[in-house]
Amino acid sequence: MSDASTDLTPYAKSIGIRIEGEEDGAPVLAFEFTGDVEGRPEHLHGGATSGLLETAGYALLRKELQQRGRTHRLKPINITVQFLSAGKRRTTYAKGRITKLGRRNANISVEAWQDDRDRPIATAIMNILMAGE
């Protein structure tokens, strides 16, 4: 089994995304507010927030597939992000949940939050094609 942090993409590493821990078997990812993720002054850039959501979704799917002994190339069919409130100058977290895992595609929902887990700042719905290797 590989170290989950080495599975992060170069983009994820470049903005400081890290594996913070695990909840209910799902990786929780996080990053700190830095100039690399700042959009308008004192606020997270939407692209950085989206990147965190996407990375958390893929991390969960890879972990689940690995546990089932399945290997696939993952290709996005559709990723929809909904921004609910502006991210501020604090740590941002994200965690995904698989809503459907079939033979050829998966649906994942992901939430990002800062201070209050019950008040997400953004959500994503991901539909991923799992191509055989």
Rank of each mutant, 00 (worst) to 15 (best):
R18K: 14
G96I: 03
G39C: 07
R73P: 03
R103N: 09
I19R: 10
E111A: 12
G39F: 06
E133H: 02
A48D: 11
S5M: 12
G87E: 06
T91R: 15
A106K: 06
D115L: 09
D118S: 15
L74M: 15
M126N: 09
Q114T: 08
S2H: 13
M130K: 05
G21V: 04
I19F: 02
T71C: 07
L44F: 15
E54R: 00
L29S: 07
Y58V: 10
T55W: 04
A30K: 11
T9Q: 03
V81E: 02
R117H: 14
R62Y: 14
P41C: 01
T71E: 14
D36P: 01
N127R: 11
A4P: 15
A30Y: 01
T71Q: 14
Y11Q: 13
L8V: 00
V110H: 08
F83E: 03
T99K: 08
I19Y: 08
P10D: 12
G35W: 01
G35S: 06
D7V: 00
V110M: 01
G46M: 00
Q66N: 11
P27M: 01
E111S: 13
P27I: 02
R119I: 00
I108G: 08
G51T: 01
G47V: 03
E23A: 13
K75A: 12
G69R: 02
F31W: 05
A48H: 07
D24C: 05
E54G: 00
R119C: 05
A12F: 01
